[in-house]
Design a protein around this nucleic acid. Structure first.
Length: 760
DNA sequence: GTCAAGACGTCCG
DNA sequence: ACGTCTTGAC
């Protein structure tokens, strides 16, 4: 279930990838999902009560696929259901029963296909089924855990703890829980799609730029989620608009009631808050502490006792028993150990643990201190050996029973810092940057209703390179509609900025589509870009110009290129050495002193533009993005989705740079490692530089428009391993990162992928 | 009056 | 994921 329509809404930040690109990492997976899919294959047998283990086979097949690709799966199973879900679960159970009945009838009636279809709806994944799978997982040393309540929350917790570096799931709820890295649409070949929280700023469908987790969550809940029915006629888009416009759920509800167009239940707000608290504080099992904890560390103002809806507390020993799969999380009864399916595996199971890396430090040792018993193939044990009296069993379990195997990841950066994961891929982590960016705006403004004190680990900052071209004729109206009423409410702070910007622009091309202009005005990604024009500052320090003139630079090249230039909203984000010339310190008087970042830049922080922008308190408080002004070959800033006209101009093909551009290009070149719109760094061997510049590629030959070449390159780069290799790198010593030192990395093999990717 | 965005229901893998 | 229906804007 989850939030219907959320994943499609984020389509523009879907990054096609393959599992093998995450080799060496551990990914959490939703065990229920795999079991369910496996169960579909044997729906009939299950409905008939026949013994079958096909669902186990399916899941294990996936496990092996993960291993094959070098990725460690960390299976997480659902536990008990939350009170808030109990009702819906009850009705679902009823429906399953109904489907089962109908299905079996159809079967008897000799309509197998219809029966099958019906029986698929009757599938119920039980703790016993999970237990069967768990037995196999133990044999293969696959880490797993049974969540006290929902697997989603558990997965996100594991991710925050750095026990996994991402989550493989089809459930969009994970994003609402705060997942940072989600892999979806995984197929049997290992193809999948990555959705990264840090890319949210790049979503094209709606502008989530600067949105906090809190706002995002509000939007999701408002549109309807598992914990709270949505209001009639309010889907995601509308919810987005409402939150954007009114900022807080309270105000949204007040407005809705005032307008009377929507009927809002009496206690909607209370329910809403409960839903949110459930997303925030649901109980999970911490493999490190071996105990129940809350998904989010509660602040002082949070009274857990007043939140029964997040699930009842669970005693430590019980929680452990549940976590390892010994006890049914719902009934709290011991789950009988299934009779051995796997005699063939005995030897393997008995084999001295080759499994988990040994030198892993103490938490791990703890997990393995019960090694002895773990080695005994449970499947071969007497099923009753665990059937102890309830009083006693918890103790026994805690001490003797197998525990989830937890591999501390070979990913130093995960544990090292507050700023965890900044993982891999096209990203780099500049803690400072992230920190800055993660400051919730609403907080700054004192708007956050439920005090989004939340997690410290939020990743909000813009990270990926986005080539939003507001002028792109592809989507203006939609966005305009989504944003327009936001603009009129946004108040004085925002408006002037826009008008300044656009008055300038419009003067230039008055006759140009008015529509477009309006759309632009309503598009805050423009503000975003404008606000953060990095190099404006630097430029100006050398040769001050009026903002409008700066804009002019963009426009001048060629009218249609304006779009490209205006927006590469950006990313930079990830450059490690951000503070160099390229970065625009500025923009946010509210948020941070230019202090640290501008050793060399100090002065630029308050350049004319900076001052200009001072007025826009709200806007400027948002995370900033970096824009790469047209310079480096325009090509680089062309997003694949750009209309052909954007791509074609021959001029874009010529890498001729003005001196100024060269400076900028050099700076960017040197300082960025993430996907940036900048002129390509040295391409991976096997690719000619030219191939990286978009114009040289026929747009038509690019099947996946959402990906741009820079990103592709970045994606194919072994950043994951970089992180591992350079654990402590604070970002200052990686100048060459994205350049030619790649060969050094242990990923020469991946290069092939790039070309494949490019031309497939 | 038209058009299109968005919500919602149904079907499919 | 697709298709239909309702609603709101122009």
């Amino acid at each position: 279930m989850g939030i219907s329509g959320l994943l499609p809404l984020l389509k523009s930040i879907h990054r096609p990838t393959e599992l093998k690109k995450y080799a060496g990492e551990t990914f959490g997976v939703d065990g229920y999902g795999w079991l369910h899919r496996g169960a579909v294959a044997c729906a009939i047998e299950l409905a008939q009560g026949k013994p079958t283990r096909k669902y186990v086979d399916f899941a294990m097949h996936r496990v092996r696929m993960f291993k094959y690709f070098g990725v460690t799966p960390y299976l997480v199973f659902d536990g008990d259901m939350l009170p808030s879900k109990a009702k819906t679960e009850a009705s679902r159970a009823k429906r399953r029963e109904e489907s089962k009945r109908i299905g079996l009838e159809l079967l008897r009636a000799g309509k197998p296909s219809q029966a099958y279809a019906e029986l698929q709806k009757a599938i119920d994944v039980t703790p016993e089924m999970a237990r069967h799978l768990i037995e196999e997982l133990k044999k293969e040393e696959v880490p797993y855990v049974v969540a006290p309540y929902e697997a989603d929350a558990q997965l996100v917790y594991l991710e925050r703890q750095g026990l996994i570096s991402g989550i493989v799931s089809e459930d969009s709820d994970l994003l609402v829980f705060g997942a940072k890295r989600l892999l979806t649409k995984l197929d049997q070949h290992g193809q999948c799609v990555e959705i990264n929280r840090r890319d949210f700023c790049a979503v094209r469908e709606i502008s989530l730029t600067g949105w906090t987790d809190s706002e995002f969550r509000h939007m999701a809940i408002l549109s309807g989620c598992d914990y709270l029915e949505g209001l009639n006629n309010i889907g995601l888009k509308t919810a987005y608009r409402l939150i954007r416009k009114h900022k807080t759920p309270e105000r949204v509800v007040r407005m809705l009631r005032f307008e009377g167009k929507h009927q809002v239940p009496e206690n909607y707000l209370e329910d809403f808050q409960q839903a949110e608290l459930t997303f925030l504080y649901q109980r999970v099992f911490c493999p490190r502490k071996q105990d129940i904890v809350l998904l989010t560390e509660p602040g002082p103002s949070v009274n857990v006792d007043e939140m029964p809806f997040i699930g009842a507390p669970i005693e430590t020993e019980m929680a452990r028993s549940i976590a390892v799969g010994d006890v049914n999380p719902i009934t709290r009864q011991r789950i009988p150990v299934p009779r051995s399916p796997g005699k063939r595996r005995i030897s393997q199971a008995l084999a001295p643990a080759s499994g988990p890396p040994r030198s892993l430090g103490k938490p791990i040792d703890e997990y393995f201190k019960d090694k002895g018993s773990r080695r005994i193939p449970l499947g071969e044990m007497d099923p009753n050996c665990f059937a102890i009296d309830p009083d006693h069993n918890s103790n026994a379990t805690a001490a003797d029973a197998p525990r989830p195997i937890v591999f501390p990841l070979p990913r130093p950066y995960l544990d090292s810092a507050e700023e965890p994961a900044s993982p891999a891929r096209p990203y780099t982590n500049n803690p400072r940057l992230l920190r800055r960016r993660s400051e919730p705006i609403s907080k700054l403004l004192g708007l956050d209703p439920f005090g989004s004190s939340e997690h410290r680990r939020r990743t909000t900052g813009p990270v990926i390179q986005v080539y939003q071209d507001p002028a792109s004729s592809t989507r203006p109206p939609k966005k305009a509609r989504l944003c327009d009423d936001a603009t009129d409410e946004e108040g004085a702070s925002a408006t002037p900025e826009k008008s300044k910007f656009f008055s300038a622009t419009q003067q230039r091309k008055p006759a140009k589509k008015k529509e477009t202009a309006q759309m632009l005005m309503s598009d805050d990604s423009v503000e975003e870009a404008f606000r953060s024009l990095p190099d404006f500052d630097s430029w100006r320090s050398e040769k001050p110009v009026k903002p409008s003139d700066e804009i002019a630079i963009f426009d001048e090249g060629s009218p249609e290129k304006k779009s490209e230039v205006v927006l590469p909203a950006a990313p930079l984000a990830e450059s490690d050495n951000v503070e160099d010339q390229v970065e625009v310190p500025a923009s946010s008087p509210l948020q941070h002193g230019p202090a640290e970042e501008s050793q060399s830049q100090g002065p630029t922080a308050m350049t004319p533009l900076g001052e200009l922008l001072k007025g826009f308190s709200y806007e400027t408080a948002r995370p900033r993005t970096r824009v790469v002004h047209g310079l480096p070959t325009p090509a680089s800033s062309v997003h694949p989705t750009a209309t052909p006209k954007n791509v074609h101009p021959p001029t874009t093909q010529t890498p001729l740079l003005t001196p100024l551009q060269r400076i900028g290009a050099r700076a960017l070149h040197r300082t960025t490692s993430g996907p940036t719109p900048t002129r390509p760094r040295t391409p991976v061997s096997g690719l000619k530089p030219k191939q990286l510049s978009v114009p040289s590629v026929d747009p038509a030959s690019i099947p996946l428009p959402k990906v741009d070449m820079e990103e592709l390159e970045a994606l194919n780069r072994p950043l994951g391993s970089e992180d591992q290799i350079v654990p402590e790198s604070d970002g200052e010593n990686e100048e060459n990162d994205d350049e030619d030192d790649e060969p050094k990395q242990a990923c020469s093999g991946m290069r092939l992928d790039l070309s494949r990717f490019l031309y497939s």
